[in-house]
Design a protein around this nucleic acid. Sequence first.
DNA 1: ATTATTTCTTTACGCGCGTAAAGTTTATAC
DNA 2: GTATAAACTTTACGCGCGTAAAGAAATAAT
Lengths: 343, 343
Amino acid sequence: MAAKKIKNMEEFAALSGISRPTLSKFFNDPSSVRASTRQRIEAALDRYDYRPNLYAINQNRRLTKNIGIVVPYLADPFFAEIARNIEAHILGMGYRPVLLGSHGNPEQEIENLENLRLLKPAGVLLAPLGRTSDHDRIAAFCQDVPTVLFDASVGTVGEAFVGSNNEQSIGLIVDYLCRTGEPPAFFEMKTPANPNAHKRRQAYIKAMERLNHTPQLIQASGSGWEFEQIGFREGSRVVRDRKLTTNTILCSNDRLAIGFLSAAYEAGIRVGLGDDCTMRVAGHDDHPFSRYTCPTLTTVSQDYEAIAQKSAETLMAVIDADSPADSRHETLFDGRLVMRGSA
Amino acid sequence: MAAKKIKNMEEFAALSGISRPTLSKFFNDPSSVRASTRQRIEAALDRYDYRPNLYAINQNRRLTKNIGIVVPYLADPFFAEIARNIEAHILGMGYRPVLLGSHGNPEQEIENLENLRLLKPAGVLLAPLGRTSDHDRIAAFCQDVPTVLFDASVGTVGEAFVGSNNEQSIGLIVDYLCRTGEPPAFFEMKTPANPNAHKRRQAYIKAMERLNHTPQLIQASGSGWEFEQIGFREGSRVVRDRKLTTNTILCSNDRLAIGFLSAAYEAGIRVGLGDDCTMRVAGHDDHPFSRYTCPTLTTVSQDYEAIAQKSAETLMAVIDADSPADSRHETLFDGRLVMRGSA
DNA sequence: ATTATTTCTTTACGCGCGTAAAGTTTATAC
DNA sequence: GTATAAACTTTACGCGCGTAAAGAAATAAT
């Protein structure tokens, strides 16, 4: 990599002794040129250090090699983690990931999509906000850009959906909790930001009825994405009132559970399985922090890596098919029980 | 916003009755055209729904309106939160934030910078990995692109640095801990990923000596960015061995403290200020989760918003000056003591 | 060696926009 | 009302690359 600064492909062609159209072919797909010329180009490349102008490349392309990734909330380690996994897969497939967070804001979500549109992406992986999303505009976007939804769905929008099987996973942990102690009450938000919450509530009710128990819902007020705070506030109320008919709480997600555990601790209530414990708490998602709560949180894991990989693969399939698919494909991954100290 | 799809600015010019060069001026700066024509354009804009092609715009510009934001680890809520704040400021200044995470990987960090280079950004806000960063290549990047470092510095690289005043903040909490109980031991990583860690260690030693106490370092082995895990592992060892000559632990950062608290809980040691407590633990950063630990974590807050705002403003100043500054400006924000339950 | 095939070079045009130059219209000043 | 400045229109070129077409060169097949 010498000092020489190279302005454009023309100049690099002159210096490397390869015609510009051939270079252009090479940069679009190195395997599309003869092995011998490829070597010559690569040799020249580390002598002269040239990289094609990104804007000029994409100007004429109808579609770029960009893949948009949109998640509802980047400061939530769950999404940060899944985004990280997806990024890696996108890169591995020779595409450029562009990561955007919606900050829990529907308008930001739409703006992210509109900004992505300007990038002429080959496709988009979208984890929508859910209930608060602007459904129509998301649908319109999916019409124009190949889009795979993950984590949460918005109606039947998008070419495909990859998520977790809430019925299975909630059933799993309800079974476990009932088998090992009192049947759980279900702790959730009254107006949850995420559509998975609805499915989880229904799955909870179904599982409880299957086991001949009466479902009991605890619904926290509050909105937004400060789940821990909501879990803490409502959790404090719950343990103070002592109106519960059970000592076991199943939280709709781990972040609520983290807040709940904190509230229980502050109230001097010992949570867990020990003899001195008076309460059990379980969560859902296997959030990165759930192994460091006090006590450590029993939960159902979502397979981040599997969801990431399947999402990326599905999008690639849609892009390669390039005609809008005749059917909308749904992939739901089963959860796995993660037994820790809290239940 | 009618159906009509518009191909390019030429076409929009014809439909709106405004010449293309004037439109070009408008899109680059709406206030640069007469108010009356501006209204005509805006009226046409929501009749026809046209947006200039991003790639064509940027092709001829030497610099774009892009601002790169690079953080070492997006799955760390601290960085996610600060990135979120910075993004908002960048947008408010009429620029386009491009957020990239380095996943704790120095090569990824360099690749992020190289990718940013292709975007011809007006400037970059970089929170470097620190010790493991490729200093030379970061320095080379800063030579070409106006860059402001934040959170952690790399030598004296970059046009400016915005961070926190570790000497003040560590001094603050050491003072507090000594005033209210036994002087703290300092819990940190032996080979910390972050250069702030070194400054904090030195600040701790200095503060202890100032108060005529003997510094005591507890250094956890392990590398990477799984701080909670390292804090948990080493914390378990510390509370098991009982070699400590003090009941008070000051952790180099909140994530270590979170792991430590979890270890203490598992070991049945009560942490906090109550009569039944045998240990105090404090952290540093006011991490988003530190208010939900058990007990809640006493710490020193970094002013996320102030750091974000100052970083963005400083970068703008550097960009507007457009000549490399004659001096490197450092801004250090003081920490604020956040008293919670753990110490 | 001859033919067929692949890969390359040469030449040329277009993408959508920035932007400069020269001339024309509109607003502001007197 | 005229003079002057500001803002606009018209015209034209360039940016760096994708890509098509035609011919030359290198490789593979016979």
